[in-house]
Structures are given as structure tokens and as C-alpha cells.
């Protein structure tokens, strides 16, 4: 062994070879996953051709494959994701800010931290059972649902307690499901903000809240949004917890008893009732179609999958767009 001469030269060739091998191995794994995705998209796309059209999007479901549509599930999923986002973002970011910026590292906060990490790994069907007990049945405290009417001056909103199998129950369940991931990724993002930024702000006479509000949160926002995107994407594709909640597999109306696009335009106030109405979601409908004895429903299911993927991509695209705008605003 020496650091000069032919011995060294030979080893040098070997070292370069190893490096090249590793690079190609990494390249292969990347293209492999990409290839699998391409095959999946291609096969589903081929099955969906001829079945996916505007009518499919605006029709409610039918037993006749050619008449089947995804309107109810599409609207249901959009409502779910909207309400889930509204609930999980403030709750998750708030918890993360508390844990990172305010809480002292006591045994209690460590215990909370550990449990959040554990919750992130709990199977989604468990959340379904939790949601069913807490939101749908409210621990069975009442034998039969009691109706409440919220009187707004132009319309009224009816809801029951216990909530029952409604959009809000589903959204609350999905919120619980996505919260741990939102909290953990938001914590991660807050932690990556350099301490010097906080110190500089505090040294200028900023209060803790002003420091968090004007320096730390804006700097952490892109990272927080990434976590939100990831967990909401997961939530929108969830089937199991919604099935456990007892959401319908097929419905003939969108939440709010909206039966068609025209109906929604003529009675916009029905929208307010939507969070308190029965619902179905895209993955539930897909599941229903796949299980249908008529084999031709495979094509309907494929069309449904394409719709789900497109919705997912549109939501992700919107979130990435927002993230980019914020990133431009904080000018590193």
C-alpha cells in the first residue's frame, strides 16, 4: 500500500468506478418508480378513454354504466378537503408554533411530542372508528338525533346532534388523520428557521408574538405548506375511514341535496347546507364501481381514478403555486 505509484493508480480507477456505479444505481431507482407510474397512468388512461367526458363529471350515479357519473363524489371530496384544510391548518400550525416557540422542554411536552409522532403512524381505519364514535354517534349519548335549526335571515341551516354521517363528520375525521403530519412538518419548518433571525428580531424590541408573526412564520411558511400539501393529498385519497364512518358509496346528489349544476346555480343557498348533508367521495365511488358485478364498470372506475388524480394534481399545483409566491416574498 502506498500513496504513490501504480498501486495508488489502480485503486484510483476502482474508486472512480464505484462512484459511477452508485450514480447509476440511484438513476435506476428513480426511473424505475417513474416507469411504474407511467405504466399505471397509461393502463388506466386507456381504460377510461370513451368513458371520461363532461357528462361523467356532472351526472350523478346510475346503475346503467353509460349513465354513471361522479358529480356527487367530486363535490363530496371537494367539500371534505376544503373543510379539512380550514380545520387542520390553523390547528396544526398553532400546535407546532406552541411546541417549537413557546413550550418549555418539560416532561409533558416531550410526552405530547412522542404521541404526535405515534399518531402519525396510526392506520387510517382507526381514525375512521374514532370519527364514527366521536362525531357520527357522539359516544351514543342520545338515543335518537335531535334536530337543530340555525336561522339565517335568508335561509336556514338544519343539522342534527349527534352529527350523523355528514360531510362535517368526515372532515373532522380527516382533520384528525392529517393533523399529526401537519404538526410534525410545521415543527420541522419552524426548527429550520435560524435562531439568529429570532435573536435579531427580539434585539430590536419585538415581542415574542411579533417575532413569530413577522419573522419566523413567513420564513417557515414554504416548509409548512409542503407538509399541508402532503397530508391533504393523503386525506383526499382516503377510503377506509370514510367507509367506516358510514358514508354512502353511491349517492344521487352532491352535498346540500344539489342534483345538478343547474340546481346549484338556481339555489346557491343550498351550498350552506352542504357541510351538514350526507356525502360520498371519489375514492368511495371508485371502490363501489370496482366491486360492481357488471365488468363494464371497470371503465367507469378507471374514469373515476383519472378524475381523482386530476383533482389531486390540481390541488397540489395550487398549493405549489401559493408556496412559490410566498417564497418570492421572503427574499433570501
Amino acid at each position: 500500500m502506498s500513496l504513490h505509484g501504480p498501486d495508488y493508480e489502480r485503486r484510483l480507477v476502482w474508486r472512480h468506478f464505484l462512484g459511477l456505479m452508485f450514480e447509476w444505481a440511484c438513476r435506476l431507482t428513480t426511473f424505475l418508480s417513474l416507469g411504474i407510474l407511467a405504466v399505471l397512468l397509461f393502463s388506466i388512461g386507456r381504460q377510461a378513454i370513451g368513458w371520461l367526458d363532461w357528462g361523467f363529471l356532472v351526472r350523478s350515479n346510475s346503475y346503467e354504466p353509460r349513465e354513471a357519473g361522479i358529480m356527487a363524489g367530486l363535490m363530496g371530496s371537494l367539500w371534505l378537503i376544503l373543510l379539512t384544510a380550514i380545520m387542520s391548518v390553523p390547528l396544526g400550525v398553532g400546535a407546532a408554533v406552541y411546541l417549537e416557540e413557546y413550550a418549555k422542554p418539560t416532561r409533558m411536552t416531550k410526552f405530547i411530542q412522542l404521541n404526535i409522532s405515534n399518531l402519525a403512524g396510526v392506520p387510517s381505519i382507526v381514525y375512521g372508528i374514532l370519527g364514527f364514535t366521536v362525531f357520527v354517534r357522539m359516544f351514543g349519548l342520545r338515543d335518537r338525533p335531535e334536530e337543530f335549526i340555525l336561522d339565517l335571515w335568508f335561509t336556514e341551516i338544519r343539522f342534527f346532534l349527534p352529527l350523523g354521517r355528514i360531510v362535517l363528520s368526515g372532515a373532522c375525521t380527516l382533520t384528525l388523520l392529517s393533523l399529526p403530519v401537519v404538526i410534525i412538518s410545521a415543527q420541522e419548518a419552524l426548527r429550520s428557521v435560524p435562531a439568529s433571525l429570532r435573536h435579531a428580531s427580539l434585539a430590536l424590541g419585538a415581542t415574542k408574538w411579533q417575532t413569530v408573526r413577522h419573522q419566523v412564520l413567513p420564513a417557515a411558511l414554504p416548509g409548512i405548506l409542503t407538509g399541508v400539501i402532503l397530508s391533504l393529498s393523503r386525506a383526499i385519497g382516503e377510503t377506509a375511514p370514510l367507509a367506516v364512518l358510514g358514508a354512502a358509496a353511491q349517492l344521487s346528489f352532491a352535498p346540500g341535496r344539489i342534483e345538478s349544476v343547474g340546481d346549484a346555480i338556481q339555489n346557491p343557498s343550498k351550498m350552506l347546507q352542504a357541510p351538514f348533508d350526507q356525502f360520498t367521495a371519489i375514492p368511495l365511488q371508485i371502490y363501489g364501481w370496482i366491486n360492481d358485478p357488471k365488468p363494464v364498470f371497470e371503465h367507469v372506475a378507471a374514469a373515476g381514478i383519472v378524475v381523482l388524480l386530476v383533482v389531486l394534481m390540481l390541488l397540489n399545483g395550487a398549493a405549489i403555486f401559493i408556496r412559490q409566491r410566498f417564497q418570492k416574498k421572503i427574499r433570501w
Binding site: P194, S196, L197, H199, A200, S201, L202, A203, L204, G205, A206, T207, Q215, P218, A219, I330, R331, W332
Partner: peptide, 21 residues
């Protein structure tokens, strides 16, 4: 402390501009 730090300013070793204008 907030008003104390307004009266007693500080410049750090590593320059720490905020990622703003």
C-alpha cells in the same frame, strides 16, 4: 424587556438581515 431592548440596541457578529427588502 421589550422596551429595554428598544433603548439598548444590538449588532451581532454575523450580520443577520431579515429575508425582506
Amino acid at each position: 424587556v421589550v422596551s429595554l431592548r428598544k433603548r439598548v440596541g444590538m449588532v451581532f457578529q454575523k450580520s443577520t438581515p431579515f429575508p425582506k427588502s
